[in-house]
């Protein structure tokens, strides 16, 4: 299991399989998505100064900060519109407090969306409390359009629970 789990698996789904559920894909994919994960590591230099580096997640433990990202690119000759990228947050991590407060998130599995400050969580006794970063289940980015050849990167920071 060691080698398998150590590498950030890049498993591209075959377009032929996607076609079974989405006929539009059969004509070719306009957008490419490529996910990645990095470990944010604080390096202390000889002079005591610290710097932050993003490294391959060779060794990760609870409390470490990971950056999950998705690179997108429009490889087609046509612009696409209503480009929405949705990313469920793995249960073993929580959204890091340093995440942008403008990020659109969901705290209920994707049913409702908004900025974190506008969301609340229902507690066991029926009362509601303001949602916190650890409550976030999904993050979402929305772009009105992606022009031909346009590339971008969408990422969120997370801390291993």
């Amino acid at each position: 299991m060691k080698n398998f789990a150590k590498f950030a698996a890049a498993i591209f789904l075959a377009s032929g399989v996607i076609a079974a559920s989405s006929p539009a894909i059969a004509q070719g994919r306009a957008i490419d998505l490529k996910g990645y994960v990095k470990l944010e590591k604080i390096i202390t230099g000889n002079d005591g100064a610290t710097s932050v580096e993003l490294v391959e997640p060779e060794t990760i433990v609870p409390g470490d900060k990971l950056i999950f990202g998705t690179d997108y690119s429009n490889n087609s000759a046509e612009a696409v519109s209503n480009f929405v990228v949705t990313n469920p947050i793995p249960s073993a991590v929580r959204l890091a407090p340093v995440a942008s407060s403008d990020l659109t998130v969901s705290v209920d599995g994707g049913a409702n969306w908004g900025k974190l400050a506008t969301l609340s969580v229902e507690q066991g006794d029926g009362t509601k409390r303001p949602a916190q970063h650890a409550d976030v289940t999904h993050v979402r980015w929305t772009l009105a359009a992606v022009a031909p050849g346009e590339k971008g990167r969408l990422e969120y920071p997370a801390i291993i629970r």
Partner: peptide
């Protein structure tokens, strides 16, 4: 820990999800 993003967009032939 596994992370997968999903994109939806409209390329002229209706919504596409990948």
């Amino acid at each position: 820990i596994e992370n997968t993003a999903t994109a939806t967009y409209d390329a002229g032939d209706g919504p596409v999800t990948i």
